[in-house]
Each structure stands twice: as C-alpha cells, then as structure tokens.
Nucleic acid binder design. Structure first.
Length: 290
DNA sequence: CGTTACCTGAAA
DNA sequence: TTTCAGGTAACG
C-alpha cells in the first residue's frame, strides 16, 4: 500500500510525538508472529524495553525508528516495512483496539504505537545499524544524491520496461505502483518504453516528474485508495488528484483520449495512449560499457 | 528476466 | 464465486 509519500506522512506525524519517549512494552498479537520474520518476540522485547526513541528516519518505504541516540551511540534501530496493507498508528493506550491490530508498543506517556495490517506482509527488524536494512536499496527518491545522472546510471543498457525500473528499489527507493504510473504520465513516457532507450530530455523529464509526483503526494498526505491511513488512522487525499492511476476508461485530463490499463512487469499499469505513445526506439538503446 | 507465493478482505 | 490489491522475496 504505502509508497514514499505515505511512509513520509507517517514519519512526519510521528516524529514530534514519539521522539524522546521511552518504550515500556512490546507485544505481537497471536497469529501475527511472522511480522518478526522468525526472531523470537522475547528477544526483541528484551532490547526494546526501556529504550528511548531518539528519532525517526526513512529510506524509501522503510521507516527507521532510532533508539538511544541512534547507532553511533550504540542504540539499535527498529526497521518497519508496511508492505501492502500495514499501518503504524499512534493512539492513547486506552483507545479501543484498531481493526487488524497485529502489534503494539506502549510508551511512557500513556500512548502507544500500534501496527495494523490486514494481509500480514509487514515486517519489523531490529538492527544495530540501519545500513543493514537498507544496503540493497538505491538512493531514496527524495535524496539530492538521486540526481538525473545517478538515475541514468541505473537505467543505461537496460532493456526492461521503464515502469519496471521505477519499481525496482535497487535503482531508486520509494516509488511504487501509483507514483510510477503518475510520473510516467507527467513525463509523457509509455510504461513499456525500454529503459536504456530514453533520450537525455526524456530522462531529465522523468527525473523531474518523479520529484513532482512525490512532493505532491506528500503535500496531500498520501493516497488512500483502500487501506492506507496516517498515524491517526485518517485517510490521505492524493487519490483525488491522480491523473491516470486506476482511471481506466476515463478521459485523459490533458487530451481526452481514453486511459488504458495493461500489465507491465506483472503490475497493473495505467496510461494515456495519446500523451504516452510507444515510439520506435530500438536503434537508440545504448549498450552497457564494461 | 517473468511468474509465483505470501495473506486477507472488498468489490465485481 | 472470482478477481484484485500502494510490495517484495524466492523461484525457474
């Protein structure tokens, strides 16, 4: 469910509310043990109890809850991934249980973090250094290190559809199915355009479009098509502003052509056949140099 | 590289 | 009843 803008909305909401708080409990509800990916709950609980939250970061779609001054100060980091339907809420401890509650982390001020997740795909990892969790990821899509040049380094020589590369977290971290389709629309690129065939202007446009759609998503507090909610359980608004995502058979805002849907790289994709034509590109595919 | 599995509920 | 889902890891 949540992509970079949704995770960032939760991060920004939580940061001022939980920074400085100490953890007073940790409970995974029966049937949700997979959340810890085989690590015994007692092992996590032992390290969490009494730890103080010193900050909350993010890399791509991963939330990084930093404990005891972060890893330079010897504290571990709780790495949370919400996958498809996970949600991290901040509630008063006496508030009624949220639906699909899977874990709770009581804090020392009478509140608690609550992890809810319909499909139980979400994960918690407690690591000594957050780099352990993010080592395989490309640069965060909002990091200045993710430059147009860095983007092209990941794309050049690849024949895979550009849509698949946008979803590949090793190239750039944080883009998911909604924002991939939206960025391709803004950049006037067909989702199946071969990645390595993008001309300089096309990749500059796509890089800029990624920045715009993510900033827009954050401004609108994320897209709630189905399950996504912020840390208070409230829906975002970005679903009202999408240009193509899940708008199959509707007219394009820009040209009136009928928006189409197809499967690219195993994921539903939505695009405007007139604004995002698939031109001939085979001659312009650059080969990767050794 | 594309396909399948992981889970559950909502919508068609 | 069937299909589909904001994601990723493990397949072949």
């Amino acid at each position: 469910m949540p992509e970079l803008p949704e995770v960032e909305t939760i991060r920004r909401d939580l940061e001022p509310r939980i920074t400085g708080r100490a953890i007073t409990g940790f409970d995974v509800l029966p049937g949700a043990e997979r959340l810890l990916r085989g690590v015994p709950q007692r092992a996590i609980r032992k390290r969490l109890l009494g730890a103080q939250i010193s900050g909350i970061g993010r890399h791509g779609k991963y939330l990084l809850i930093e404990l005891n001054g972060h890893h330079d100060a010897g504290g571990p980091t709780l790495v949370v991934h919400l996958r498809m339907t996970g949600s991290l809420r901040h509630r008063r401890a006496d508030a009624p249980d949220d639906r699909f509650l899977r874990a709770r982390i009581p804090l020392d001020d009478g509140t608690e973090l609550r992890f809810t997740d319909v499909r139980k795909f979400g994960t918690f990892d407690l690591v000594d250094d957050p780099a352990e969790a993010t080592a395989k990821l490309g640069p965060d899509a909002t990091d200045p290190a993710f430059s147009a040049d860095a983007f092209w380094t990941g794309l050049r020589g690849r024949r895979a559809p550009i849509k698949s590369m946008l979803l590949d977290q090793r190239i750039v971290a944080g883009i998911g199915n909604i924002y991939a389709d939206e960025a391709l629309f803004l950049a006037h690129l067909h989702p199946e355009a071969p990645s390595g065939s993008l001309r300089p202007k096309e990749r500059a446009d796509l890089h800029a479009a990624i920045g715009r759609v993510l900033a827009d998503g954050i401004k609108n507090r994320g897209a709630s098509f189905r399950d996504y909610t912020d840390a208070d359980g409230a829906a975002g608004n970005q679903q009202y502003f999408v240009r193509v995502f899940r708008r199959t058979d509707e007219p394009c805002d820009d040209c009136g052509a009928t928006i189409r849907r197809s499967v690219v790289g195993g994921r539903a994709s939505h695009w405007c056949p007139r604004c995002q034509p698939l031109r001939q590109r085979s001659r312009t595919v650059t080969s990767k140099r050794p």
